[in-house]
C-alpha cells in the first residue's frame, strides 16, 4: 500500500505480523522484525523454530498467509507474479547450508553465470569482479577447479562469492556452516566477518553462538514460530531475564563447538 518513505529509509527489511503455515503446520505465528541497512542480524533458536523460513520469506521463496513484508522498498507479500519475485531475488543474495554450487561449471563460471545471463552484465567486467571476489574469499588459485574438487568450506566460500557477484543489497545466510566439518567452519566465518565489516547488510541463521555474539548488531531468538526476544548480543547472551534463552544460550556457548553438538544431543 505504501512504498518506502524517506523516514523509513534506514529499514531495509521490515516484517510485520507475518503468519505462515505449511498445510496444517503453523511455522510462523506473528513475526515482527525490523532490520536497518548495514546491520548484521543473527537469528538463533532451536531447530524447527522457523528461522530458515523467515529468510525464505524475505526473498520470496515462500509466501506467508498474512502479514506485511517490506524489503528494500518492495512489498514482498503483495508480489503476485513470479517475474516480480525474480526481480526481488536478484537484489537479495542467499547462501544455503548445502552450498548448492553448479557441479558442471568451474568455480569462476559458477560466479559469472548469473550476473551475465540473468542481469545481462558485461562478461569481461564480470570475470574481473569474479576474480576480485575470489581473492576476497581467498580462493584465487581455485578459479578453474570444479566444485567436486573443493572441500566443503571452499565450496561454501565460492557460494558466498557467487551470491556477492549479483551485487545484492543484502545477503541471507541460511545455516551456512552447519554442513561443514569443524576445521573448515573458521574459514567461512572469516569471510562473513570481512563482509559485515565492509558494511554488507547480513541476516544470518546460525548455530555458531560465539560468532553471532561477536559480529551481530542485533540477535533475535526464535522459538515455536515466534520471536521470543531480540536485542544486542550483550543483552541476549549475558543479561537476558528470559529463562528459556538463558538455558539455550548457556547450554550452547559453554564449551565451544563440540559442546554445541553434545548439547543438542541431550
Amino acid at each position: 500500500m505504501m512504498t518506502a518513505s524517506p523516514a523509513t529509509d534506514a529499514a531495509i527489511v521490515k516484517l510485520e505480523d507475518v503468519h505462515l503455515s505449511f498445510g496444517q503446520t503453523q511455522v510462523l505465528k506473528g513475526i515482527d522484525l525490523t532490520i536497518n541497512k548495514g546491520d548484521a542480524v543473527s537469528i538463533i533458536g532451536p531447530s524447527g523454530s522457523g528461522k530458515s523460513t523467515i529468510l525464505r520469506c524475505i526473498n520470496a521463496l515462500v509466501t506467508p498467509q498474512s502479514g506485511k513484508i517490506t524489503v528494500a522498498g518492495t512489498r514482498v507479500d503483495q508480489l503476485t507474479k513470479e517475474s516480480e519475485r525474480i526481480q526481488l531475488r536478484k537484489r537479495v543474495g542467499i547462501v544455503f547450508q548445502q552450498y548448492n554450487l553448479f557441479p558442471h561449471l568451474t568455480v569462476l563460471d559458477n560466479i559469472v553465470l548469473a550476473p551475465t545471463r540473468i542481469l545481462g552484465a558485461d562478461k569481461t567486467a564480470t570475470v574481473k569482479l569474479a576474480r576480485e571476489l575470489l581473492e576476497k574469499v581467498r580462493l584465487s588459485e581455485k578459479a578453474d577447479a570444479y566444485p567436486g574438487q573443493l572441500s566443503g568450506g571452499q565450496q561454501q566460500r565460492v557460494a558466498i562469492a557467487r551470491a556477492l557477484a549479483m551485487k545484492p543489497e543484502l545477503v541471507l545466510f541460511d545455516e551456512v556452516t552447519s554442513a561443514l566439518d569443524p576445521e573448515t567452519v573458521g574459514e567461512v566465518l572469516w569471510v562473513i566477518r570481512d563482509l559485515i565489516r565492509d558494511g554488507m547488510t547480513s541476516i544470518l541463521v546460525t548455530h555458531e553462538m560465539r560468532f553471532a555474539e561477536e559480529i551481530s548488531d542485533t540477535v533475535v531468538f526464535t522459538e515455536n514460530g515466534r520471536i521470543v526476544d531480540h536485542g544486542s548480543p550483550q543483552q541476549i547472551f549475558h543479561s537476558t531475564e528470559n529463562p528459556r534463552i538463558r538455558q539455550f544460550v548457556g547450554g550452547l556457548s559453554g564449551g565451544g563447538r563440540g559442546a554445541v553438538r553434545d548439547g543438542e544431543g541431550i
Binding site: L61, I86, K90, G93, N100, F102, A114, R117, I118, M166
Partner: peptide, 23 residues
Amino acid sequence: TQWEATKGLGFSRLQALRFVILP
C-alpha cells in the same frame, strides 16, 4: 537444491533449465 540455488540467484524456470539443469 540445484533448482533452489537458481531461484535464489533470480533465474526463471526456463533459464534454470537452460543454463543449469539441462547441461
